[in-house]
Amino acid sequence: MNKFFSPIACLGIGAFWLVLTLSGCSESNQTGGPGTVSPTLAMSTPVRVTGTSEGLVLVSDYDKSAVLKLDPVDLRITGTISVSGRPTGLARAGNEVFVGNESKGNVEVYALDSGGYLRRLGGADHLFGLPNGIAIDAAQGMVFVVDSVARVVKQFNLDGSSAGADIGGGLLAGPTALIVDAVNQLLYVSDYGAPTSAFGDTPSIQILNYAGVLVARIEGTTWNFDRPQGLALNGSGKLFVAEGVAGLVLVFDVTNPLSVVSFPSIGSGALNMPLDVYIDPRNNDLFVTSSLNSEVVVYRGGGA
């Protein structure tokens, strides 16, 4: 009944792009150069992925209780940030890494370089049911956290203080992840949907402004997706969405959110429960967490 994708596909060629993966299946890929990485750091359950201005790729690994730092070229693990609990949501601002800790129901902030713990948003645990997604508008100094249980987006300042009331209440039914369009001050929120939603069962990408007003919806029933997860937006208005159960990365043109255009999806046959995408702004390399294969898959130039 249940066919699993083989976890041995550590290196392959995607439909259009060079595909390089890091997973728990290959010792050489795990450890990289001699003496640089402990073999115990093999990836287990990658969830969210983001990057740094220096080009490092950051991945929250749920079962490893860590944020992994990957070399973007060969995907070697070059370091970790230990998290006491199950890390999910992930975002970066400057030298600080924001990590959703499912076990503690909080969002913790760590120093990127040292991995040292700095603070919690709101200063307390259990502020979130499931802090599955984090997005940051560094210019505005805003941190947005999607809570899949409370079904809202919570707003904070970078220092951890509250930045206002929750938004999205009554609109979001099963939110999982989000990203900010800082230029237009929009939030793109992946939403599984639920019968309790104002929009019925339908999964969607909901586009809200920072005040929480619904701007547009990308409907799953229209664009054939069911479990939207992590998102990424490139510089030319393309939105990339990890589709968990279909094992794909969906691509939309959202230059005009009210008139979305789709492109061929990415990753067919190579991704097993993809949960997030990240585009390296330097070269448009597209990184995808393939959680059930314990991999991060990179499509060189795939985020263009």
Binding site: M1, N2, K3, F4, T45, V47, R48, Y62, R86, T88, E102, L130, N132, S148, V149, G174, P175, T176, A177, Y192, F225, D226, R227, Q229, G230, E243, G244, V245, A246, G247, N272, M273, L275, D276, S291, L292
Partner: peptide, 19 residues
């Protein structure tokens, strides 16, 4: 949904990142 297998479908909610 998604042409998935049952286990993947379960984990889409009950696994990491799920609701």
């Amino acid at each position: 949904v998604g042409g998935s297998n049952a286990q993947t479908l379960c984990l889409s909610c009950h696994g990491p990142g799920g609701t």
